[in-house]
Structures are given as C-alpha cells and as structure tokens.
C-alpha cells in the first residue's frame, strides 16, 4: 500500500478551510474600515477617528477624511476637525459640506471672527450651501457684542419657521431686559428694600425694609428714652442692615442680569442644537 497522498492533500485543504474560519486579518484595510464605520455609527467617535487614520491612502479618501473630521468635531477636538475638513479637495462631493462643517467647528470654538472671515472668502452666493452658511454667519451676531444689522436684513437668511424665534432673539439682544445695578442701589439707599423690589425680589425687599426700619426705630426710641448703650447697639445694627440692603440690592441686580444672560445663551444653544447648527444631517449610518 502506498502513502495516500491524495488523502493528505484533501485533509490539508479541509484543514485550511476550517482554519480560515478562525483566522481573520483584523488589520486589513477592509476590516479596519468596516470596524471604523461601526464605531462611527456606535458614536464612539474618538476610536472611529483613530481607526480611519490607520487606513493607507487615508489622505486621498475624501469620505474617510470627512468622517474623521466629523468624529473630531463630535468629541470637541475642533482644531483637528478643521484640519481634516481643510484637507478635502475642491473636487470632492464633500467639499461644500466640509466648508460648512468647518464653519460650525469655528463657531463651536468661539472663533466667530475667523468663521465670518472664512464665510466671506469661501461662500460665493451661487454656492449650494451658502444659505445655510449665511444663517450660521448671521446667527453669530447674536452671540458677539458686535453691532447688529437692521432687523429686516438680519432676518433675511432665515426661513419662516426660524424667523419668529430669531426675531425674539434679535429683540432681546438689541434691548436686553437688564436691571440697572446703580438704580437698584440708589433706590435702596432712599427707601430700604425698594432696590430689591425693583429687581423682582419682593419678599427680600419687604424684609429689608422691615428690619432696617425696626432697628432704626429702636435706636431712635432708646436714644429718646435715654438708654444710650442699647441705642448705640441698635444704631450699629440699623447701619449694618442699611448698608447690607444697599449692597444686596446692587448684587441682586447683577445676579438678575447674569440670570437673564444665562437664559438667553441657553435659549440660543437649544435653538442651534435643535437646528443642528444649520448643517445638514448625513445618512452615513442608515
């Protein structure tokens, strides 16, 4: 009987097939990309970006660069995100979107002047996304302290649904409902507690009025009755509460203004997030 070579070859073939089931090249281009896409859709953006950057020819693949830029944008690494968007060629179908995303990144890193300058130099009117870019550009004026354009002009880039909300933001920005801390202080100096009532702290105002009034009266009454020691104690207390009432009214006005500004900024952020910063939503994960 001869050595059954055919059997050996057959077995070798079967074993290789079986072994391949257990073998996978995790670091092949195809698998890295598949895994990176999975991470991107699983919103694990930092890992997704790192995987995309492992790909050979990464720099020549505009989809990958764009998704890397988006990944960095989502994790808040705006400058790396901008670097990626800037690398997208003007011939790429992602070019327009990358410019818009770059503007969003600049907006998010509070580089409003850089963003405006980029908009002015890179978005001609015939650009397909110039209307979206214009909205983000215009919206930035609600955040900075720059002079606002005329209302009609300001509202022009926005659609009818957005206009109502933007109009209220514009009015607020143009004439914020702040309370004057100087006026609050002066009012409380004349009538204790009135400055607090002016800033909306009515119960605090009434309390300040009562406490200062009562101690002043006690001081007066004790001086009148010849109880000098007690009278001086009450005078000190009245002066302390009077000073506190003036200082408290100034502070109350400042707190009121800070609260108003906070609410306004929160409103802007909610509006921007609900409108995705005027940037389109991509269908990479569907």
């Amino acid at each position: 009987m001869k050595f059954p070579i055919y059997l050996c070859v057959l077995e070798l073939f079967a074993s290789i097939l079986l072994a391949q089931e257990k073998q996978i090249d995790f670091n092949s281009e195809k698998n890295i990309k598949k895994f990176a896409d999975y991470l991107f859709c699983d919103k694990d953006y930092l890992r997704a970006a790192e995987e995309y950057q492992k790909l050979n020819g990464y720099e020549g693949n505009d989809t990958i660069i764009f998704k890397t830029g988006l990944s960095y944008l989502f994790i808040g690494d705006y400058s790396t995100s901008i670097d990626n968007f800037s690398n997208i060629s003007s011939l790429s179908p992602f070019y327009e979107n990358s410019k818009l995303e770059r503007m969003k990144a600049q907006f998010l890193m509070n580089d409003y002047f850089g963003m405006r300058s980029f908009y002015n130099n890179n978005f001609p009117e015939d650009d397909s996304l110039s209307d979206r870019a214009n909205r983000l550009f215009t919206f930035s004026y609600l955040i900075t302290e720059d002079r606002l354009p005329q209302k009609e002009k300001f509202l022009l880039p926005f659609n009818s649904i957005e206009k109502e909300k933007i109009s209220s933001f514009y009015d607020w920005k143009n004439d914020p409902p702040y309370k004057s801390s100087a006026l609050a202080g002066i009012l409380s100096a004349i009538v204790p507690g009135s400055g607090k009532i002016y800033t909306g702290d009515i119960s605090d105002g009434i309390f300040s009025f009562l406490v200062t009034g009562v101690f002043t009266f006690l001081a007066y009454d004790n001086f009148r009755a010849g109880h000098d020691t007690r009278a001086w104690i009450f005078t000190g207390l009245a002066a302390f509460f009077y000073g506190g009432n003036v200082y408290g009214s100034i502070a109350a006005a400042q707190i009121y203004n800070a609260k108003i500004t906070f609410e306004f900024n929160k409103g802007l952020n909610v509006f921007l997030e609900s409108n995705n910063y005027f940037v389109p939503v991509y269908e990479f994960c569907n």
Partner: peptide, 27 residues
C-alpha cells in the same frame, strides 16, 4: 509498506490539522 511506515503516515495525517487549527486562531 511496513508497520512502522504506516504508523508514520497515520501520525502525519492526524497532526497536520492540529498545527493548522492551533496556530491560526486570530480571535
């Protein structure tokens, strides 16, 4: 083919898949 050679062949045939399967479990 003598008995020893037969044993060698059988051993060879049995050992091949072990090496292949064992060495290549990339998971």
């Amino acid at each position: 083919m003598n008995f020893v050679t037969k044993i060698q062949h059988i051993t060879f045939i049995l050992v091949i898949p072990f090496f292949l399967l064992w060495a290549q479990d990339s998971f």
